[in-house]
Design a binder for these strands. Structure first.
Length: 353
DNA sequence: GAGATTTGACCAGA
DNA sequence: TCTGGTCAAATCTC
């Protein structure tokens, strides 16, 4: 079963490779180009349908040595072993890991591309656990290829925070620029009122209040914390909803209740790396969890009920990639590029061994 | 000079 | 008592 699935994937990859190799020739032959692309899309759609119909669960591995890549997916429904997807030569790693104490109900999948200055993370509820919901949404920003997914934590355990943890949203966003100390613009104007070293964290936490607080008595606050293991990603915690509703930009998301994402581009082929990344983000947004919540403009990323849906993000990620219509392996490289300086290579893979 | 940022001190919850 | 969150004076920037 896996072999046939693998062969389907390899078939799609081969088609993509062929297209890539002949791209210079086909550049002025749109008809052939379109047909070739449709063939590739069709191949990966077949993969997607096969994956979904067979309801992949448990441990599974897909090897693609011919394209120099290995897609590996480890998971057990009971214990949420780390799920790792390694790519071309193992140069990039995507994994689901604990980012919070084991008692927490949050798990995440994170993707990060330092060259693009792009980070992408998925969170979903505890597998096999009960209780809280993790509400998710996605967005793509215009600065530095920022990609982010927002998740409102509504679990009971999360509410037992130090102070008022209700109406708290944790968001992870990539730094708008390499080495930037400031988090990406989120559409609101903030006033920094404090910074503090946090025990056990490598980087200080910054505290912000809404700049409209005085004018509108807006209670919104946010905290910005760099991740220890990936300083190119900020963990932004929003507290309290904005009551001012006055934004610094016309088209902004309004955390914590983010608005619906923009429709995907008409063309299936983004014209730049950033567009590709953003486009992937939007695809991810549309697919992760699947069921839009029109009332809040958010998506349910996981029910937290420990059912088979918990396994969806991996399949959906494949869906997003395979359905993207990306015709060449370059696009994969762009999104999950193999970078020598990629810190995950050294740090994360050691853990895996 | 006004507004933003920094930083040490203080407060409150666990 | 420890630690995260907030306050407010000092400092910086425009």
């Amino acid at each position: 079963m896996e072999d046939s699935l693998e062969s389907l994937i390899l078939h799609g990859c081969r088609l993509a490779e062929i297209l890539e190799q002949n791209l210079p020739i086909l550049a002025d032959q749109p008809d052939i180009l379109v047909n070739s692309c449709e063939e590739i899309v069709s191949a990966f759609k077949n993969v997607k349908e096969r994956v979904l119909s067979e309801g992949h669960t448990g441990v599974q591995e897909l090897h693609g040595s011919e394209v120099g890549g290995v897609i590996r997916e480890h998971a057990t429904m009971a214990s949420l072993d780390p799920r790792v997807i390694t790519g071309v030569g193992g140069a990039y790693t995507r994994r689901v890991e604990d980012v919070v104490p084991e008692s927490s109900e949050m798990k995440r999948m994170s993707l990060h591309d330092q060259r693009l200055g792009m980070g992408l993370e998925l969170m979903f509820g505890e597998i096999g656990g009960g209780g809280g919901d993790v509400m998710g949404t996605g967005s793509s920003g215009g600065t530095g290829g920022e990609i982010s997914l927002d998740f409102s934590i509504a679990s009971s355990s999360q509410r037992q925070g130090r102070k008022n943890e209700i109406d708290k949203v944790v968001k992870r966003v990539a730094a708008p620029q390499m080495g930037s100390d400031t988090p990406p613009e989120d559409g609101f104007t903030w006033k920094k009122y404090g910074q503090k070293e946090i025990l056990g964290r490598a980087y200080p936490r910054s505290y912000y209040i809404c700049a409209q607080q005085k004018l509108h008595s807006c209670p919104a606050k946010k905290q910005v914390q760099r991740l220890d293991h990936d300083p190119f990603i900020f963990e932004v915690t929003y507290r309290n909803s904005h009551t001012c509703r006055v934004t610094s930009a016309a088209t902004v998301q309004i955390p914590p209740s983010t608005t619906a994402p923009p429709p995907p581009p008409v063309s299936p082929f983004p014209t730049s790396t950033i567009a590709t990344a953003q486009w992937l983000s939007m695809n991810m947004f549309h697919h992760v969890g699947g069921v839009p919540d029109s009332s809040a403009g958010m998506l349910k990323a996981g029910s937290g009920g420990g059912n088979s849906n918990d396994f969806q993000p991996v399949a959906e990620m494949a869906d997003a990639m395979f359905n993207s219509g990306s015709s060449s392996s370059n696009s994969m490289d762009l999104i999950f590029s193999s970078l020598d300086e990629h810190k995950w290579d050294s740090t994360e893979e050691k853990k895996d061994q």
